[in-house]
Amino acid sequence: MRRETLVALLSRAGEAYEACRAALGAGAGFDIAAGLVPASQLAATYGVRDEITRDAGIPTLGFAEAVEHLRDAGDQALRLGGVRADNPPYYFQLFLSADASSVVACIGVDQQHQVRNRAE
Rank of each mutant, 00 (worst) to 15 (best):
E68S: 13
V83Q: 07
E65H: 07
A98G: 15
R49Y: 12
G62R: 06
L24A: 04
V48R: 14
R2D: 15
E120Q: 08
A43L: 05
R2W: 01
F63L: 00
R54Y: 08
A22N: 12
D31Q: 10
S40W: 00
A64K: 14
A66W: 00
G62A: 10
M1T: 14
D31T: 05
D50L: 00
A22S: 14
V115L: 12
D86L: 10
R21E: 11
D72S: 15
G81L: 10
E65I: 01
R79A: 12
R49C: 04
A119T: 06
S101D: 12
R71I: 00
S11L: 02
R118M: 10
A33R: 12
M1S: 14
N117V: 10
Q41R: 13
G47L: 05
G27H: 09
R116N: 11
T5M: 07
E120G: 07
E15P: 02
A85N: 13
A16E: 14
H113D: 09
A105W: 03
Y17K: 04
A22I: 07
T5G: 11
H113I: 13
V109T: 15
H113E: 09
G29T: 12
Q41D: 10
T5E: 15
A8G: 11
D72W: 01
L80M: 12
V83G: 09
F30N: 04
E51P: 00
A8E: 15
A119N: 07
Q111Y: 07
S40N: 05
A22Y: 03
R12F: 06
R49K: 10
M1R: 09
G62I: 08
G25E: 14
C20K: 04
F92Q: 09
Q111E: 13
E4T: 13
R54V: 10
I107F: 02
A39G: 03
Y46C: 01
E65N: 05
R2M: 12
A19K: 12
P38G: 11
G14T: 07
A66I: 02
A13D: 15
G57K: 06
S102I: 00
L6F: 08
V104W: 00
A105T: 03
V104M: 01
P59K: 14
A43N: 05
S40P: 00
A39R: 03
R71F: 01
S40G: 04
A73N: 07
G62V: 01
P89I: 02
L10M: 11
L61T: 05
Q111V: 00
D110P: 02
Y46F: 13
R71S: 07
T5K: 14
R84S: 09
D99V: 06
